[in-house]
């Protein structure tokens, strides 16, 4: 489906905090145009890995290339080519979304069509609202909106759906898939497996600072089934979330 050109290459990445080994020799590649998932429980080292690739954090050792540029000496070049959505990031106080987009346009030295940007994340009605007045889903959509300003080659989403209700989650998935469709590579962290299965072309499972599995979701499931795994419960044709969504509807409702 995608060309197999690696856009991110990570080799033997480690990160120590004093005595703690947060990332312990991670290697993986992300290919242009795919959605790549970093999965794992809280504290596994997902965010640290992401922040090193985003050039927000220094690594202890290893090699990291983003769009062929090394994070060691090309961090400002890399920053121009990527978009970063932080876990629970705040925005400048007392400003409207419209003004915040102007701020970020300046920070990226870009001329932007703010209407178009807001429309692309379904927030055109909220141009004059303040960030803190938005619902959880709207906040995440706005965060993603700010990552699109510089027309990036890669965007990084750190647990974008944590804390959202099922409708908001599904809306965000649609948004993420739409962004990928426009040609942007997406790296996402999550600890929701249904989300990874729905969105990701390939995933890496991180545990205690190491990658313990890496493949497409379908292949990983296939591997497990082949090893003789069976679910304890019989699989039904629907689950409670399907019930909830069919009862309450799927439309965007975080007004």
């Amino acid at each position: 489906m995608e060309s197999r050109e690696p856009i991110i290459q990570v080799e033997g990445l480690t990160k120590h905090y004093d005595q703690v080994m947060a990332v312990n020799g991670i290697s993986f590649s992300v290919y242009r145009g795919e959605i790549f998932g970093l999965l794992g429980p809280n504290g596994a080292g997902k965010t640290t890995t992401l922040e090193i690739i985003e050039t927000l954090r220094k690594k202890t050792s290893g090699k990291v290339l983003v769009t062929g540029l090394s994070v060691d000496n090309k961090s400002s070049e890399i920053k121009k080519r990527i978009g970063v959505q932080l876990q629970s990031a705040g925005y400048y106080p007392n400003l409207t979304l419209w003004e915040l987009l102007k701020l970020f346009s300046g920070l990226y030295n870009r001329k932007t069509d703010r209407n178009e940007l807001l429309k692309s994340v379904g927030l055109e009605e909220k141009a004059y609202a303040h960030f803190k007045q938005l619902s959880g889903g709207q906040k995440q959509r706005f965060s993603i909106c700010t990552t699109l300003i510089n027309n990036p080659e890669i965007i990084f989403l750190d647990e974008p759906t944590t804390g959202l209700d099922p409708q908001a989650r599904r809306n965000l998935w649609e948004l993420i898939l739409a962004i990928r469709k426009s040609g942007t590579t997406i790296v996402i962290t999550t600890h929701y497996m249904d989300e990874a299965e729905e969105l990701c072309d390939r995933v890496a499972v991180v545990e205690k600072g190491k990658i313990i599995a890496q493949d497409s979701p379908a292949q990983l499931i296939e591997n497990l089934v082949r090893s003789g795994f069976t679910r304890k419960k019989e699989v039904r044709n629907a689950n409670l979330e399907d019930v909830f969504l069919s009862l309450t509807g799927k439309e965007w409702r975080d007004e």
Binding site: K79, V84, A89, Y92, P93, N109, T146, N150
Partner: peptide
């Protein structure tokens, strides 16, 4: 203090500004 706490500064660091 508040720009640091609310990660506004961190979001700035993810842009090319020094």
């Amino acid at each position: 203090f508040s720009l640091r706490q609310t990660l506004v500064l961190k979001r700035f660091f993810a842009t090319p500004v020094k």
